[in-house]
């Protein structure tokens, strides 16, 4: 790895760290219903929403009402998203005259965007109208992100409050998140992206004369290329900030109209981890103990830093089989070297590897390089980060509430060691919380592994795979892991078919909500519990020791549940490669 690679990585994480405190403090003010600057220009809109929806903002909900409001809201979003795709052929803003999306693909896409997964089994520019992209997908980008953040805030209230049964109002949390956090940040980022060349237009496709004529598969001369455009920048901004990841174009952030320059690449990469990282600080502020937030942020960073050098080194080293053929893959003054298959030259090895780690550490899923073309160990890293449960930064809201489930497991393990009832931030962790945390942690490996096992056992699954052997297995394992953990990135090489559309749709849906419901149940259980005063027997949860315990718990659970499957995929592929 060159020193420039290290400098780029350090600058990235340095800027990210610098943004954590101001944004985290601001978000805490939004959630504490304190006055924020944006309430002056936007407060009327917030009040209008409440009045139109018949919501009384002071009416708080118990956890069951909160959970059912969340589910009902998401159900309406799912049906709307399904219908808009199916009916796009007769709806306006369809300059390319696209027909309605096929039912199985529409249900997959609806489940995917509803849950912040943004798994894409379609090519955006060749399948979806501007209306579907804007009013269907981009709207869900906002709402799914806001849903995740609302669930997190409800859990924080459960941990902080000492009495009562309520954990806030889902409608208020959803509205304030969208209006005061996601919309302003997206607007700023979208304008910057447009200034750099990301397109934003309602025009239909643009024709461009080819420099060299070619011919199609029927031998007919082709002299013109069709270049797709559309309202891209507005969608890309929230796609990154909301850890959604669904691109306007099929090539996602490798496409020059989504991510044209090194600056857009840096800003989009920053946007991926910005809110998940800042929410740790929000957590500390709302809890009244910032150290609790910092230790969780440190745990997230530690999990990423453990594997980031591996992906950069694996990609920079290049393919040994090509070296044997005399291909020069060394880093030199004339060449960036390394494995450049599936990567954009303008981003190179480091920015492709860093993006791959960031997008899979967060449950973003956008890509600026094709993970399928990474070296086996390079591909191992994104897969591993997804398999940790999207808790190393993770999705907006969902990453932190996922990590808090591991915190509960960690304090339980520590409690077993010393023979005391486990506590976290003064709240006793009892049988109910452990049952709920267990459901939350076990559901994603269950969905990913059973799903992948089923897919490799049936013809509909294996026939969709583009590569034979261990790499093909990795493609299926990656797809199910990505969907179960609501990441949404694809290893590529897997073709869509009705079986995978439906199977992955189910996995996506349960991966989100079967995890979210127990989290809210824990919030409801904890909210009424008194805070136990700190004593000499209390396990401090803000120390480096707890950091090690937490990281160890995440690694052990991740390693033990997924390692056999990983051994059959990228590990075997690496061994075969070096054995040749």
């Amino acid at each position: 790895m060159s020193y420039l690679s290290v400098v780029q990585i350090l600058i990235y994480f340095g800027v990210l760290l610098a943004a954590v405190q101001p944004l985290g403090a601001y978000m805490a003010r939004v959630y504490e219903n304190e006055r924020v600057l944006l309430e002056k220009p936007l407060g009327w809109l917030e009040r209008l929403f409440y009045r139109a929806a018949g919501v009384r903002p002071d009416d708080e909900m118990d956890w069951k009402t909160y959970a059912k409001s969340m589910l009902l809201f998401n159900l309406m979003g799912a049906v709307f998203l399904y219908l808009i795709q199916r009916l796009q052929g007769v709806l306006p803003l369809n300059p390319q005259k696209f027909a309605g999306v096929a039912p199985d693909l529409a249900v997959n896409t609806a489940a995917s965007f509803l849950t912040n997964t943004n798994w894409q089994f379609y090519g955006g520019e060749s399948t979806l109208s501007h209306l579907t992209q804007m009013f269907g997908l981009a709207v869900q980008n906002f709402l799914s992100a806001a849903t995740g953040m609302a669930i997190l805030v409800a859990l924080i209230r459960g941990l902080r409050r000492k009495s009562g049964k309520t954990i806030g109002s889902f409608w208020v949390d959803l509205t304030r998140t969208t209006l005061y956090i996601l919309l302003p940040l997206s607007l700023v980022l979208a304008v910057i992206l447009v200034s750099q060349g990301v397109v934003q237009t309602f025009r239909r496709d643009v024709g461009a004369a080819l420099l060299q004529a070619t011919h199609d598969d029927k031998g007919k001369d082709v002299t013109e290329q069709t270049i797709s455009v559309g309202p891209v920048a507005s969608q890309i901004a929230i796609k990154q900030l909301g850890t959604n990841g669904g691109g306007f174009f099929n090539a996602n952030s490798a496409h020059p109209f989504e991510n044209p320059t090194p600056l857009t690449n840096f800003l989009e990469m920053l946007a991926i981890l910005l809110i998940p990282a800042a929410l740790c600080y929000t957590y500390g502020v709302m809890l009244g103990d910032r150290r609790q937030g910092w230790v969780l942020l440190a745990a997230m960073a530690a999990l990423v830093f453990m594997v980031l050098p591996l992906v950069v080194a694996a990609e920079q080293a290049g393919n040994p089989l090509l070296s044997k053929l005399g291909v020069d893959q060394r880093l030199s003054t004339l060449s960036a070297g390394g494995n450049m298959e599936g990567k954009e030259v303008r981003f190179g090895i480091v920015n492709s590897s860093l993006w791959a780690a960031a997008t899979t550490a967060a449950s973003n899923g956008s890509v600026n390089a094709m993970h399928d073309s990474f070296m086996p160990l390079g591909g191992f890293v994104p897969l591993w980060l997804i398999m940790l449960g999207e808790v190393a930064f993770g999705g907006v809201g969902s990453g932190l509430y996922g990590l808090l489930m591991y915190v509960i497991i960690a304090v339980f393990i520590a409690g077993l060691m010393v023979g005391r009832t486990p506590e976290y931030v003064g709240k006793k962790i009892e049988a109910f919380e452990m049952k709920m945390a267990s459901i939350a942690i076990l559901i994603t490996p269950l969905l990913a592994l059973v799903g992948a096992a089923t897919a490799v056992s049936v013809h509909a699954g294996t026939s969709a795979v583009g590569n034979p052997g261990a790499h093909g297995f990795s493609e299926i394992l990656y797809a199910f892991s990505s969907c179960a953990n609501n990441n949404g990135s694809a290893f590529a090489g897997l073709s869509a078919n009705p079986f995978l559309n439906i199977a992955l749709g189910i996995v996506i849906l349960f991966g989100r909500f079967v995890l979210a419901v127990p989290v809210l149940a824990i919030a409801g259980s904890l909210v009424g519990k008194n805070i136990v005063p700190t004593s000499s027997g209390t396990l401090p949860t803000h120390t480096p020791l707890f950091l090690v315990l937490l990281v160890g718990t995440v690694l052990l659970v991740g390693a033990l549940t997924y390692f056999p499957a990983l051994a059959l995929g990228p590990v075997v592929e690496h061994l075969i490669m070096i054995g040749r």
Partner: peptide, 30 residues
């Protein structure tokens, strides 16, 4: 027909999660 089936799948999926809310509530009491 296919559309009805697909919408039913979405409603059914989220409906199961709705039941999970009640199951978790029941677990809390027992």
């Amino acid at each position: 027909m296919m559309d009805l089936l697909m919408v039913a799948a979405l409603v059914g999926g989220l409906g199961l999660c709705w039941l999970l809310v009640d199951f978790c509530g029941w677990t809390a009491k027992h």
